[in-house]
C-alpha cells in the first residue's frame, strides 16, 4: 500500500492537525447545544403559555429558523453582526451564536410537543394534590416530557454535529478545512491523498453520529411500547 496515498494522513503533523480540527468542530457543537437546549427549554415552556402574543412571537422565531438554510444562517451572522453591531468576534463565536439560536428554535418545538402530549389527567391529578403551576412543571410535566423528548433531542444533536461541517464556509479551522489544506499541500506529491483524507473525515463523522442515532432509535421504540 506504499503508494495508495494513505501515508498522507501520517506525514509530519497531519494527523494531529486533523484531530485539532476535529476538536474545534466538537467544542463548537457542544457549546451550541448546551446554550441552545437551555434557551429552547425556556422557549418551549413559554410556547405553552396562554398568551397569544407570546405564542405568535415564538412561532415566528421557529419558522424563521426552519426556513433559512443553516449555511445562510451562518453567513447572516458572519457578515451582518460584525458590520451592523461593530462586533469583531472570531468566526467560531459567530458560529456558536448562530447554531445555538437555531437549536433553541428547534428544541422549543420539541419541548412544546412533549409538554402538550403529557396526558391531561396527569396534570389534573397533580392539581388535585394541590401542586401549584410551577410545582406541576418541575415535578410532573418536565420529567415526563423529558422522556418523551429525549429521542428527538438526540437526533437534533446528531444534526448539529453534521452541521459543523459547514464551519469551513466561514473560514473556521474545523476538521474539513484542515483536511482541505492537507489535500492541497500534497496534491503534487500524493494525488491519491484526497481519497484518504476525506475518507477519514467521513468516517469520523459517522462514528460520532451513528451510535447516537442508534440510541435515539432504541429510546423511541421504548417510548412507544
Amino acid at each position: 500500500m506504499g503508494h495508495s496515498g494513505i501515508n498522507v494522513l501520517f506525514e509530519g503533523r497531519n494527523f494531529t492537525r486533523l484531530l485539532g480540527g476535529l476538536w474545534t468542530s466538537v467544542w463548537i457543537a457542544v457549546l451550541s447545544l448546551i446554550i441552545g437546549l437551555a434557551l429552547g427549554a425556556l422557549f418551549g415552556v413559554l410556547r405553552t403559555s396562554k398568551s397569544r402574543l407570546v405564542k405568535v412571537i415564538f412561532r415566528i422565531y421557529l419558522e424563521f429558523f426552519r426556513i433559512v438554510p443553516t449555511v445562510v444562517l451562518l453567513f447572516l451572522f458572519y457578515y451582518i453582526l460584525p458590520r451592523q453591531f461593530n462586533l469583531s468576534w472570531p468566526a467560531s463565536v459567530m458560529a456558536v451564536i448562530a447554531f445555538a439560536l437555531w437549536v433553541s428554535a428547534e428544541f422549543s418545538d420539541i419541548v412544546r410537543g412533549a409538554l402538550i402530549s403529557v396526558p391531561k389527567i396527569q396534570r389534573e391529578s397533580g392539581l388535585a394534590l394541590g401542586l401549584n403551576k410551577w410545582q406541576l412543571f418541575i415535578y410532573v410535566l418536565l420529567p415526563q416530557a423529558f422522556q418523551l423528548e429525549l429521542p428527538a433531542t438526540i437526533n437534533l444533536a446528531t444534526r448539529v454535529i453534521k452541521t459543523t461541517s459547514l464551519l469551513m464556509m466561514i473560514s473556521v479551522m474545523d476538521v474539513i478545512n484542515v483536511g482541505q489544506q492537507i489535500v492541497e499541500a500534497n496534491n503534487q506529491t500524493n494525488p491519491n491523498g484526497v481519497f484518504w483524507v476525506y475518507g477519514l473525515i467521513f468516517f469520523l463523522y459517522f462514528i460520532v453520529d451513528y451510535p447516537l442515532s442508534l440510541w435515539a432509535k432504541r429510546l423511541s421504540k421504548r417510548n412507544e411500547a
Binding site: Q122, E124, G126, L131, Q135, Q144
Partner: peptide
Amino acid sequence: GMVFQSYDLFPNMTVLENILLGPVKVQ
C-alpha cells in the same frame, strides 16, 4: 382529596415519591 378512574400515579416517580410529593412539596 380526589382519586380518578385511571389512577394516574406519576410514572416518573416511585410509589413513595408519589405519596410524598403533596405533603412535602406543597404542605
